[in-house]
Design a protein around this nucleic acid. Structure first.
Length: 257
DNA sequence: ATGGTTGTCGTACAA
């Protein structure tokens, strides 16, 4: 079972990229972020033509998440963090086969110390309490998405330049650590401990061509799934195409079910 | 050089 995450930065613009990538990479499930689409405009018919079902939770202009799967969904989806009042559409959870999947579009945070930064930390704390409960009910749990946090300096092209900056600051990394401490593992680091692997590059200054990236898109696997995780990676191909998203897909391969 | 680009909307704002 191949499960991927991709911040498409407008599914309206990126639908051709997604359809192409589904055919090229053949994932069983893709978690999308920044669809920027109201639910009435979600392109579920185009995806169904390739054999994928969709569940989605979107809004106009900003945010928006979706799960696209060629395996049937086994449950109703959850579209909000329990007991956390938030008009922004950033979370979506559903069960596919025997695997519980939680798609997250983590708050960007703008700038360390800003109003949006404190929202980011409060949001992550609420997600932590939610995931604690999800793990209790679903030992086979995958939490994936755009985390807007580079876990450590190996995930940053130039750690000095990014030191204590947004996406790399200590409070953000501690918040991510709080999620991992529930019993989740960064799947990419089960197979690769080298620096220089990134999933996002700023549109400006030819950052992609210069390798100025960060690894902020993650696939976390629970303890039970860790033993069944046989591969993980980042597919930079979509970032090389015409008019790309600033993020590229990340994926994990789970053995069995 | 505190620089630049993209998406949405039709102007600033978010990333």
């Amino acid at each position: 079972m191949k499960i991927a995450s991709w911040n498409v930065n407008s599914l309206n613009v990126r639908l051709p990229h997604l359809l192409q990538w589904l055919q090229d990479a053949g994932p069983d499930v893709v978690a999308l972020q920044e669809t920027k689409l109201e639910d009435s405009r979600f392109p579920d018919a185009a995806l169904a033509e390739l054999g994928y079902r969709s569940v989605f939770c979107g809004q106009k202009t900003y945010n928006g998440v979706a799960l696209v799967s060629r395996i049937p969904f086994a449950s109703e989806c959850v579209t909000a963090i329990p007991d956390f009042d938030d008009p922004q559409k950033r979370v979506l959870a559903a069960t596919v086969g025997e695997v519980r999947i939680v798609d997250l579009y983590v708050v960007n945070g703008e700038k360390v110390g800003s109003e949006k930064f404190s929202y980011k930390l409060r949001w992550l704390e609420a997600v932590r309490e939610w995931l604690r409960e999800e793990l209790r009910q679903h030992p086979n749990l995958i939490v994936l998405g755009d985390f807007n946090i580079a876990p450590d300096d190996r995930d940053v092209h130039d750690p000095k330049r990014w030191r204590e900056k947004i996406l790399c600051s200590t409070p953000e990394r501690e918040a991510l650590r709080g999620l991992l401490d529930l019993g989740l593992h960064d799947s990419f680091r089960l197979f690769n401990d080298e620096p220089g692997h990134h999933s996002w590059w700023d549109y400006r200054l030819n950052a992609f061509e210069r390798g100025w990236g960060l690894r902020i898109d993650l696939v976390l696997v629970s303890q039970a799934l860790r033993a069944r995780t046989v591969a993980a990676g980042i597919d930079t191909t979509p970032r090389t195409r015409e008019r790309p998203s600033d993020h590229t897909p990340v994926w994990v391969e789970i053995a069995g079910g």
